[in-house]
Simulated assay, not measured.
Amino acid sequence: MLIFLLRIRYVLNDPEVTRNKRVLDLGSGCGASAIAAKISGAAYVLLNDIDPVAAIAAKLNCELNGLEPLPCLTKDLIGSEPDGWDLIMLGDMFYEEALADGLHAWLRRCIASHGTRVLIGDPGRAQLEGHDIQRQLLRLARYDLPEAVREQNHGLTSTTVWSYQPEL
C-alpha cells in the first residue's frame, strides 16, 4: 500500500499535473492515484481496473476521503479505441512481458491520436527495466521506500514516476 501512497505524492505535490484535465487511472487498484487527481482539481477522473474488488475498494476510499465515488470501469481498456484523455496514469503494471507489450502499443496509440500525456509509476520491476519501453521514459521523481516496506515488497527499494515519451 505504501508504494501507491508514495506514487500519489507526485500528483499532490504538483496539482497542475491533473488540474482541469480528463484523467484515466489505468489499473487503478484502490483508487489512490485517481483520488489524488480529483483532490488536485482534475475535471474528470475515470478509474479502470479489471478486478471488481478494486472498484469496491476505490468507492470506499473515495468515501473515506470525503469524495463522491468516482466512475469506474471493470472492462479491459488496453487495446480499445483510444479516448481523448489528457492524462493517463498507471502504476506497477509491468509485471508480465505480454502486458508490457500490449501497454506499450496502446499507450503509443493514445498519444498519437489525442496527444495524451502518460505517467507511469513503477517500483523497479525487471520487466519494465528490461523492456524496450524503458528507452522512452523520462524520470520525473523517485521516492525511496522505508525498510519495512522493502521487506514486504520482495526487496524493491524505491518507486519512480516516469513520463512516457515514445517516438511516434
Rank of each mutant, 00 (worst) to 15 (best):
L2H: 15
R7Y: 05
I8S: 09
Y10W: 10
Y10P: 00
N13Y: 10
N13E: 14
D14P: 05
V17D: 09
K21T: 07
V23K: 07
V23G: 04
V23T: 09
S28V: 11
G31C: 05
I35V: 08
S40N: 07
Y44S: 11
L46E: 07
V53W: 07
V53R: 07
V53G: 00
A54V: 07
A57D: 12
A57Y: 02
K59D: 07
L60I: 15
L60Y: 14
N61S: 08
N61D: 12
E63R: 11
G66W: 06
L70Q: 06
C72A: 15
L73Y: 07
L73Q: 14
L73H: 09
T74S: 14
T74G: 05
L77K: 01
I78V: 15
I78L: 04
S80P: 00
S80R: 05
P82S: 01
D83K: 10
D83Q: 15
D86T: 04
L87T: 10
L87Y: 08
I88T: 03
M89Y: 03
L90P: 00
G91M: 04
G91F: 00
F94R: 03
Y95H: 05
Y95T: 01
G102S: 10
L103A: 00
A105F: 02
L107C: 01
L107P: 00
R109V: 05
R109E: 14
I111H: 07
A112R: 09
H114A: 02
V118R: 08
L119F: 06
L119H: 04
I120E: 02
G121E: 12
G121Q: 10
D122E: 12
G124S: 06
G124V: 05
R125C: 09
Q127A: 11
L128E: 06
G130S: 12
G130I: 06
Q134I: 14
Q134N: 13
R135Q: 13
R135H: 13
R135I: 03
Q136R: 13
D144W: 11
D144M: 15
L145I: 12
P146R: 06
E147D: 14
R150H: 13
E151L: 12
Q152D: 15
Q152N: 14
N153K: 13
H154F: 15
L156M: 15
T157P: 01
T157H: 11
T159V: 12
V161S: 02
V161L: 11
Y164I: 02
Y164C: 01
Q165E: 15
Q165N: 14
Q165I: 15
L168S: 08
